[in-house]
Amino acid sequence: HTVDVQGVTYHFDNPEEARKFAEEMAKRLGLQVHVKDGRYKVE
């Protein structure tokens, strides 16, 4: 499970961890979480 944050890619084994990380980063950076091709993108 992959999370892209402003061009940096993070990998997680656990989909729940990936989702939480994406939401946390989006909140911290004031950005949105998009799901695209099964990847989380924070932009």
Score class of each variant (00 low, 15 high):
His1Ile: 09
His1Val: 10
His1Cys: 09
His1Gly: 13
His1Pro: 12
His1Asn: 13
His1Leu: 08
Thr2Arg: 09
Thr2Lys: 13
Thr2Asp: 14
Thr2Trp: 15
Thr2Met: 15
Thr2Tyr: 15
Thr2Pro: 15
Val3Trp: 00
Val3Glu: 00
Val3Asn: 00
Val3Ala: 04
Val3Gly: 00
Val3Gln: 00
Asp4Trp: 12
Asp4Phe: 08
Asp4Ser: 07
Asp4Val: 06
Asp4Leu: 08
Asp4Lys: 05
Asp4Met: 07
Asp4Arg: 05
Asp4Asn: 06
Val5Ala: 06
Val5Ser: 05
Val5Lys: 01
Val5Thr: 04
Val5Phe: 05
Gln6Ile: 14
Gln6Val: 14
Gln6Gly: 09
Gln6Cys: 07
Gln6Ala: 08
Gly7Glu: 06
Gly7Asp: 08
Gly7Pro: 01
Gly7Lys: 05
Gly7Cys: 06
Val8Pro: 01
Val8Asn: 11
Val8Trp: 10
Val8Leu: 12
Val8Cys: 06
Val8Ser: 10
Thr9His: 10
Thr9Glu: 14
Thr9Tyr: 10
Thr9Asp: 06
Thr9Trp: 08
Thr9Ala: 10
Tyr10Met: 05
Tyr10Ile: 05
Tyr10Thr: 06
Tyr10Ser: 05
Tyr10Trp: 10
Tyr10His: 08
Tyr10Arg: 04
Tyr10Cys: 04
Tyr10Ala: 04
His11Ile: 13
His11Glu: 13
His11Lys: 11
His11Gly: 08
His11Trp: 12
His11Pro: 07
His11Met: 12
Phe12Trp: 04
Phe12Tyr: 06
Phe12His: 03
Phe12Asn: 00
Phe12Asp: 00
Phe12Glu: 00
Phe12Cys: 05
Phe12Met: 04
Phe12Pro: 00
Asp13Thr: 12
Asp13Arg: 09
Asp13Asn: 12
Asp13Ile: 10
Asp13Leu: 10
Asn14Gln: 12
Asn14Arg: 11
Asn14Tyr: 11
Asn14Thr: 14
Asn14Met: 11
Pro15Gln: 15
Pro15Ser: 14
Glu16Asp: 13
Glu16Arg: 09
Glu16Ser: 11
Glu16Val: 11
Glu16Lys: 09
Glu17Arg: 09
Glu17Gly: 09
Glu17Tyr: 08
Glu17Asp: 13
Glu17Lys: 11
Glu17Trp: 07
Glu17Phe: 08
Ala18Ser: 05
Ala18Pro: 02
Ala18Ile: 01
Ala18Trp: 00
Arg19Val: 07
Arg19Ala: 08
Arg19Leu: 14
Arg19Ile: 07
Arg19Cys: 07
Arg19Asp: 04
Arg19Ser: 07
Arg19Lys: 13
Arg19Tyr: 09
Lys20Met: 14
Lys20Pro: 03
Lys20Trp: 11
Lys20Asn: 13
Phe21Ala: 04
Phe21Val: 03
Phe21Tyr: 08
Phe21Thr: 03
Phe21Leu: 03
Phe21Cys: 04
Ala22Arg: 00
Ala22Glu: 00
Ala22Tyr: 00
Ala22His: 00
Glu23Asp: 09
Glu23Trp: 14
Glu23Tyr: 15
Glu23Leu: 09
Glu23His: 14
Glu23Thr: 09
Glu23Asn: 10
Glu24Arg: 09
Glu24Gly: 09
Glu24Gln: 10
Glu24Trp: 10
Glu24His: 11
Glu24Phe: 12
Met25Phe: 06
Met25Ala: 11
Met25His: 07
Met25Arg: 05
Met25Lys: 06
Met25Ser: 09
Met25Cys: 07
Met25Gln: 12
Ala26Gly: 07
Ala26Thr: 02
Ala26Trp: 01
Ala26His: 01
Ala26Glu: 01
Lys27Leu: 12
Lys27Arg: 13
Lys27Asn: 11
Lys27Met: 12
Lys27Tyr: 09
Arg28Pro: 03
Arg28Gln: 12
Arg28Phe: 09
Arg28Gly: 05
Arg28Cys: 08
Arg28Tyr: 09
Arg28Asp: 07
Arg28Asn: 08
Leu29Ser: 03
Leu29Thr: 04
Leu29Val: 03
Leu29Arg: 02
Leu29Cys: 05
Leu29Met: 06
Leu29Lys: 03
Gly30Leu: 04
Gly30Glu: 04
Gly30Gln: 06
Gly30Trp: 03
Gly30Ala: 04
Gly30Asn: 08
Gly30Thr: 03
Gly30Cys: 07
Gly30Ile: 02
Leu31Met: 14
Leu31Tyr: 08
Leu31Ser: 05
Leu31Pro: 00
Leu31Lys: 04
Leu31Phe: 08
Leu31Gln: 05
Gln32Met: 10
Gln32Leu: 08
Gln32Ala: 13
Gln32Val: 15
Gln32Cys: 07
Gln32Phe: 10
Gln32Trp: 07
Val33Trp: 09
Val33Leu: 07
Val33Arg: 00
Val33Gly: 01
Val33His: 02
Val33Lys: 01
Val33Met: 06
Val33Asp: 00
Val33Cys: 06
His34Val: 15
His34Ile: 15
His34Glu: 09
His34Ser: 14
His34Met: 11
Val35Leu: 14
Val35Arg: 05
Val35Asn: 05
Val35Trp: 14
Lys36Tyr: 09
Lys36Glu: 15
Lys36Leu: 14
Lys36Gly: 06
Lys36Thr: 14
Lys36Ala: 13
Asp37Ser: 04
Asp37Pro: 04
Asp37Gln: 04
Asp37Glu: 06
Gly38Trp: 03
Gly38His: 05
Arg39Asp: 15
Arg39Trp: 12
Arg39Leu: 15
Arg39Phe: 13
Arg39Ile: 15
Arg39Gln: 15
Arg39Gly: 15
Tyr40Trp: 13
Tyr40Phe: 10
Tyr40Asn: 02
Tyr40Gln: 02
Tyr40Asp: 04
Tyr40His: 03
Tyr40Ser: 01
Lys41Cys: 06
Lys41Val: 15
Lys41Ala: 12
Lys41Leu: 15
Lys41Thr: 15
Lys41Gly: 05
Lys41Met: 15
Val42Lys: 01
Val42Asn: 02
Val42Phe: 04
Val42Met: 03
Val42Ile: 07
Val42Cys: 03
Val42Gly: 02
Val42Glu: 02
Glu43Met: 07
Glu43Gln: 08
Glu43His: 07
Glu43Ala: 07
Glu43Asn: 06
Glu43Asp: 13
Glu43Trp: 07
Glu43Phe: 08
Glu43Pro: 03
